[in-house]
């Protein structure tokens, strides 16, 4: 049923550090690489080597410039994927029950065999986290690498989402946000983790850590100008040129 669970035992999700992300897009590639051969239909591309390439991605990295009232603007790289919302509007609109939120860990998934490809869930998501696969006609979204995190065939350090495992900057963290003692919950508490579009009422599980305050250079007093008037040879040249027709002299 596409009713949402009242509560979930755990709230697995990501914490993304906007202070640390360097915008390298490695998470985008790792995500596409893993999910191309894993859960459900592969993530297809259309016209990949042609003039108008496009394709299905579950994670995309935007870059924003934030211009404060005073001081220099700041560039913020901004990875965005499914936020596994507690009040996920994408789940309740689904007419077939293909979209669901798991009661045990809060992951929002699509059962692709039941998806009719109506696209309503993608409309309902304010974050653009769902994309219709143009080759398969079914909805694709971040699975939080559900086929990695519980996978006992993988080494323990690999049992986390591909994007988190690959991030070279350590800007992505994975864990249980329902447990106040978990590393991700502590990060959120310490760094003021925030929700995206809180006014949409989706109660996202994923949190974003804001960029830290930048150091400010103290305003140094301006130095006296070293040379107001040319002297020596340059002085002579200056005076001579001024005497010519059209000069200042």
């Amino acid at each position: 049923m596409t009713d949402l669970p009242e509560t979930t035992e755990r709230k697995l999700g990501l914490v993304i550090d906007l202070d640390t992300c360097v915008g390298c897009h490695a998470c985008v590639i790792a995500c596409k690489g893993w999910n191309d051969v894993a859960y459900g239909a592969p993530l297809s591309d259309q016209d990949p080597y042609g003039a108008d390439p496009s394709g299905t991605f579950l994670n995309r990295v935007h870059s924003y410039e934030v211009a404060p009232e005073e001081g220099p603007p700041q560039l913020v790289h901004f990875p965005k994927s499914c936020l596994h919302c507690e009040d996920a509007p994408c789940v309740t609109v689904c007419p077939t029950g293909a979209s669901y939120k798991r009661a045990e860990d809060g992951i929002v998934l699509v059962e692709e065999d039941a998806c009719i490809g109506c696209g309503l869930c993608a409309w309902a998501c304010p974050y653009g986290a769902r994309e219709m696969d143009m080759a398969e006609g079914v909805m694709k979204k971040c699975t939080l690498c559900v086929d990695r995190i519980y996978n006992e065939h993988l080494a323990p350090e690999d049992r986390e989402p591909a994007c988190v495992r690959t991030c070279p900057a350590g800007a992505r963290h994975f864990g249980d946000l329902a447990d106040p003692e978990s590393a991700v919950s502590r990060l959120v508490a310490e760094r003021g983790g925030m929700d995206l579009m809180p006014e949409q009422g989706t109660r996202p599980v994923n949190k974003y850590l804001p960029p830290r305050e930048r150091d400010r250079m103290p305003a140094a007093p301006a130095l006296e100008p070293v040379a107001q008037e040319p002297r020596g040879f340059l002085g002579w040249l200056d005076r001579t040129l001024d005497r010519l027709p059209g000069g200042r002299g």
């Binding site: 496009s54 143009m134 804001p210």
Partner: peptide, 19 residues
């Protein structure tokens, strides 16, 4: 990021269009 200043899109995630 709205309380830090005016936010504007510096570059999109991909050069091409998407769904």
């Amino acid at each position: 990021l709205g309380d830090r200043g005016r936010v504007h899109s510096f570059e999109p995630p991909h050069t091409g269009p998407n769904y």
